[in-house]
Design a protein around this nucleic acid. Structure first.
Length: 230
DNA sequence: GCGACAG
DNA sequence: ATCTTGTCGC
């Protein structure tokens, strides 16, 4: 199951933004999210003065959160961090890690925005187009848009709006704790995105699969942080 | 022109 | 994202 390349990654910032506008037109954020048995989450980590990125994808069983499979790797960063262009830096290694999975999960959660992006193509949407599976963006902070502060209890939510358009949901996953910013990546609607995040969140602020991916990728970074593998 | 700006 | 100690609160 090889991933068919959609486009090149070595683009100038202006070219990258133009491509995002084209790709955003192909994103489907109206599809209802079906039952998800195998849930995956991806995350990326790196050290400050190092040009290597550590990427990981963790797959868990719905309900029990039992880890079914994990995929991790180290790769050279091919793009700098530019607000709004995060996927050009982190998507390549995430796609590579995903491609190494033995079995395809039903949905992929990404640590970042979905369509809640200035040009409606956050990393979750971008990766969703490449993979052709449902993806959901769950970010810890806001990139763009405005909203009314959601209620203080777990489950309380408020629509995220940008330029008169609905782009996501500000969701309180834990009472009295800062909310997370949820938005459809691809092949998923607002309700499905909210439901997936709520159903995968327990005693912590972040979705369990995302936390597991975060822990795993940091484990890889701290362990392989000194030198390469050559 | 000024401020904001996922990870 | 990462660099870092203590500290407030349940």
């Amino acid at each position: 199951m090889a991933i068919e390349p959609l486009h090149r990654w070595d683009l100038s910032p202006d070219e990258a933004r133009a491509l995002q506008r084209e790709l955003a037109a192909r994103v489907d954020a109206t599809r209802a999210l079906g039952p998800c048995r195998r849930i995956a989450a991806a995350d990326v980590s790196y050290n400050k003065g190092d040009d290597r990125l550590f990427a990981a994808v963790v797959v868990v069983e719905a309900g029990t959160f039992e880890v079914v499979e994990r995929s991790g790797l180290v790769a050279k960063a091919g793009y700098p961090y530019v607000p709004g262009l995060l996927s050009f830096r982190e998507a390549p290694p995430v796609l590579e890690a995903f491609d190494r999975l033995a079995d395809r999960p039903d949905v992929l959660l990404c640590d970042g925005q979905g369509i809640a992006h200035p040009r409606r193509l956050g990393i979750a949407s971008h990766v969703g187009l490449w993979l052709g599976i449902p993806t959901v963006g769950c970010a810890k902070s806001l990139l763009c848009g405005s909203f009314d502060e959601p209620g203080p209890d777990r489950g309380d939510r408020s629509p995220l709006i940008h330029k008169k358009e609905r782009i996501g949901t500000v969701l309180r996953t834990r009472s009295r704790v800062s909310p997370v910013y949820v938005s459809p990546g691809h092949l998923c609607d607002f309700e499905g995105a909210e439901r997936l995040v709520m159903e995968t969140t327990g005693k912590y602020r972040l979705s369990t699969p995302i936390r597991l991916a975060h822990d795993f990728v940091n484990e890889l970074r701290r362990q392989g942080g000194a030198g390469g593998s050559t």
